[in-house]
Design a protein around this nucleic acid. Structure first.
Lengths: 201, 201, 201, 201
DNA sequence: GATGAATGAGTTTTCATTCAT
DNA sequence: AATGAATGAAAACTCATTCAT
């Protein structure tokens, strides 16, 4: 038999999942508590037993997802044998994280990623966490000789995050005719080699 | 003396500008018609003489800006002497367009870019317009031998748009201590050469 | 023709009167904005054009009434020829003020008088204003020799206000079979002479 | 060992006391069942084993207190040797009853005394009980010759109750720098002799 | 008896939109 | 054309009360 705590968590997650579904369909502002409650199969008031208010649902999702996702990212980078392997694993993990749930991806990209509900500090913190991963990879690659020496780490982070996000966004707005993770290698190739032609160098 | 049309446009633009200012400060949903009216120096009801409803203001801004911005993009690409020059001009024009007004950049990035108020068609249309520019540049470069032959044009578009957007977003959330257009060359360099080290090839 | 300002005030007072009616019938907490709006013949939202919130309606009434009532009290006291005449006029004005509207009396006695919605400062201020009136009367009477020398002014205020309030409250809960102002002389007599028998002194 | 009834009463009183504390702090309407339950150290649902509903808590308190207090009042009046002694004992008992607990005094004055939760019948009943005490004292005093013959008993009740209540209310809103029962003699003096000067008679 | 999670009716408040002036 | 007071639908949130455990 389940103990009380387990049941508590179950309902918490049920509401969170319902909220993500509704947020992804209507956007944060047009989504109503009643819709979320109905989707979760609970009464409106029940939501307030688990979340302070509407905003708290979104923030909770964000915190929850970020923790989960970054743990995975760090783990994958650690597993990589060399800089390029680490890089590939990071890109792959990033794409895979969002591939699992289109709804989650939409909410994350639209409502969380782009400020509004997140404090500047939260955004900066996340940006810094990603930067650390990038830094580790680049510095290793520079030692190995596989990565250029003249790089701005913040800019590389911007290139990577920006490109990956756009790939995700495009996939989200497309009818998902291809797998998101299948974009790993093409994207990796582009980020590593650039679009220029070196043959003549 | 001004003719009627000119006067009409004056007020139309005054409201549009006020709206952008307010949207950028509070976000689309928290912004109220009254705030916009006050900022524009008109009565609440007057806004409805120029716009169908609140949503129409945002859509109008988007259409207006997109037209303006893409005209500039096309123009710059046309002026470029060769593929890389065209590319550099596109990136520079893109960054400069958003540098002029932080407020505009915020609204564009947060409210327009990321769906919500825009139809899928609008987004696809914009994506396609950008794709055309990228295609033109890449195909020229491939003829010239300055750009790799094995490229997916949609992916290159995603890399470019994603990276540029992230650079803009980072700049927006920073205290603007550097000029956005100064990022043109570093970004260009990264996009063209990638982060990999070729010396040993 | 009425000017805009006049019309504004008209609606303000219409809402205030409706509120008093509803508050007196159901009490502050059970009264709803919708009931007040219906009674005033306006839409719910209109109330918020004139009052910050529900609480503000009650506070406004209190401020409004207090100012009005105390102006009258002062005026009457000023008109009195001597201490006992002044006293009689004060008691009479006090009773008359509440006689005009049973509804007003209920709200005043129940919701305002007895804290809850009023700051301690407001209550103290009111208490002090009354005290000033009492002080003036007593000091004059002491000079005239019509009032005892050994009196605590605060206590006299408490005796008077308490007794008058209780007379009003009793009247309010009775079916108003007598006029409130007819209680002036009996009350005055009791306050001045006390219940004791002096004949034997 | 305690019997069932005793245990029942223990919890019943614990809840009643907790309720008074919470009511006095937040007022009846703003006080929540949860707050009362927490204060009493029981679960929310438990309260409904002892009281029909929220209103019933207040009514029970009132009934309970009234019974207790009037028993004391009657007892004291009975003990008095003569009219004035009885009167002094009544005033003293009245003040002392409220001195014991500031919280109780607040709830009694604000929530009970002034209708809202009490039926007109309850109020009248209470008023009549007090009237009986006053009547007894006055009629005795009139026989003794210590009290005026020309008195309206209801009005004397109003004078007394009103004055005492106001003394209590003032004390409650003050920081209790003096003892409430110390007001017995000054108040008694005022009620018996009035504020007028008899020396010249 | 005791618990406390769940309920959902009921309330305040906001604000896009309308329309008489 | 311009105004801005009035509208009322819609939404977030609260909390007394219930009932399965």
């Amino acid at each position: 038999m389940q103990n009380r705590e387990t049941k508590r968590n179950e309902k918490y997650e049920k509401i969170l999942e319902a909220a993500i579904k509704i947020f992804s369909k209507h956007g944060y502002y047009k989504a109503t508590i009643s819709q979320i409650a109905r989707e979760a199969g609970v009464a409106d008031g029940t939501i307030y037993l688990y979340f302070k208010n509407k905003d708290d649902i979104l923030k909770s999702f964000f915190t929850y997802r970020t923790r989960e996702v970054f743990a995975k990212f760090k783990d994958e980078v650690k597993k990589g044998k060399n800089a390029l392997d680490k890089l590939r694993r990071l890109i792959h993990a990033h794409l895979t994280a969002f591939e699992k749930s289109r709804e989650m991806a939409i909410v994350y990209q639209v409502e969380c990623k782009k400020r509004s509900h997140l404090s500047k500090d939260k955004i900066k913190e996340m940006s810094n966490m990603y930067m650390e991963l990038v830094k580790e990879i680049i510095q290793l690659g520079q030692k190995e000789g596989t990565i250029r020496k003249d790089l701005s780490i913040p800019l590389v982070r911007q290139l990577m995050v920006g490109a990956i996000d756009e790939v995700i966004t495009t996939w989200v707005y497309t009818s998902k005719k291809y797998s998101l993770s299948s974009m790993t290698d093409p994207l990796m190739d582009l980020i590593v080699k650039g679009i220029g032609n070196d043959k003549e160098k």
